[in-house]
Amino acid sequence: MEVRTIKVFTTVDNINLHTQVVDMSMTYGQQFGPTYLDGADVTKIKPHNSHEGKTFYVLPNDDTLRVEAFEYYHTTDPSFLGRYMSALNHTKKWKYPQVNGLTSIKWADNNCYLATALLTLQQIELKFNPPALQDAYYRARAGEAANFCALILAYCNKTVGELGDVRETMSYLFQHANLDSCKRVLNVVCKTCGQQQTTLKGVEAVMYMGTLSYEQFKKGVQIPCTCGKQATKYLVQQESPFVMMSAPPAQYELKHGTFTCASEYTGNYQCGHYKHITSKETLYCIDGALLTKSSEYKGPITDVFYKENSYTTTIK
């Protein structure tokens, strides 16, 4: 009895394709271990004539594949690729409408935090270190965002349907971005203890939790000093293409032309909904596939993004 075979390709990165001759009487799992086709788990399936010449994702289970996976995804987590594939199996079914010149995501599976993050990423200057993220990001900007969303979920250790947080998501993504040249110098002034300067680099240099107003941050924000008295913390120097200011959701007025974009969060910790506000020729609110415009805006804002380049204080 002759062994019926077909020729397929296996890959971990969709760049390096490895030619395989597979036995049609055995499952993919018996031949390769966990195997995925377009995100779908085909591990328990036997090869079919229609699979001839198709590319299958496999887990990096030998040295060659491990090197290829690390170079593309910059992670050695053995569960990463499987999590990416199972997320992709959902995100490829989502709709990605162009809204006001940006790629958004039609609401499904509690994905409003991903839509808000995706919209924000198209408006701030950011370059990702893992080629996987950078490639998928370019495709997302062009309207094909399924891979990018699935990668975000995998890097953030999230599953489809789980509630997510924009600030946490951005923080994970910033860790995989090139923020080497970003720098922030802060000064804390206390009447009792004097003053202390701190220099922050990388992710810490672009994120701040405690106030939404970048102007206020430049002037000074009140913080408790270690001595128990009130101290003032203010920005001395900022070198970065953008800054992200966050605070627990509270009524906040966004003035046209003073910011790049913002995240609105309605609801409580267990259950809520994100919308995205962007400042173009007027203010726009993007909620999944829905767009509304207004000249002014007041609502429960939790993150505001500002364009920056270089700032030095005039406070002496």
Rank of each mutant, 00 (worst) to 15 (best):
T260D: 07
G202Y: 02
A140F: 10
Y274T: 00
P97I: 13
Q31W: 10
T43R: 11
E2P: 14
F128Q: 03
L17S: 06
C261W: 01
M170F: 08
A87K: 05
M245V: 00
T192C: 10
S171I: 14
T258A: 14
W107N: 05
T55N: 10
Q20L: 09
K44L: 12
L290D: 14
Q270A: 14
D109M: 04
V236P: 01
P249H: 04
N178P: 04
Q134D: 08
Q222D: 15
T159N: 09
Q251G: 08
I15A: 07
F32G: 07
I105D: 02
L291D: 07
D303V: 02
V58C: 11
Q230A: 15
R139M: 13
Q251I: 12
Q31T: 12
L114I: 09
Y252T: 13
L254K: 02
S181V: 07
Y265W: 00
N16K: 09
E71P: 03
G82I: 12
I124V: 08
N147L: 05
T103Y: 14
T75G: 03
P130K: 04
R167E: 02
P131S: 04
T55E: 07
T43Y: 09
F148E: 00
K95C: 15
T232A: 06
D287F: 00
Y265D: 02
T43N: 09
T260G: 01
K44V: 15
Y73L: 02
C112G: 00
A262H: 00
G164D: 05
T27N: 15
R66H: 09
L254W: 03
A262I: 00
Q197L: 10
V21D: 13
I124W: 00
N309G: 13
T260K: 00
P78V: 09
Y252S: 08
V99E: 07
K275L: 05
Y84S: 02
A115M: 07
T169H: 01
V203Y: 15
F70P: 05
L118I: 11
Q230L: 14
L153R: 02
P78F: 10
L126N: 03
G161K: 06
L186A: 07
G161M: 06
A231E: 00
I6F: 15
G228L: 01
T64K: 14
C225W: 01
Q31F: 12
L133W: 01
H276E: 02
E168N: 09
M209P: 01
T5Y: 13
T10W: 09
L179H: 05
Q123Y: 04
T266C: 07
Y172A: 09
Q270T: 11
T258S: 12
G143V: 03
Y96V: 02
G288N: 06
L114P: 04
F128D: 03
D303L: 05
L118C: 03
V160D: 01
V3P: 13
V8T: 08
I105T: 04
S263E: 01
L291C: 12
F128V: 02
P47S: 06
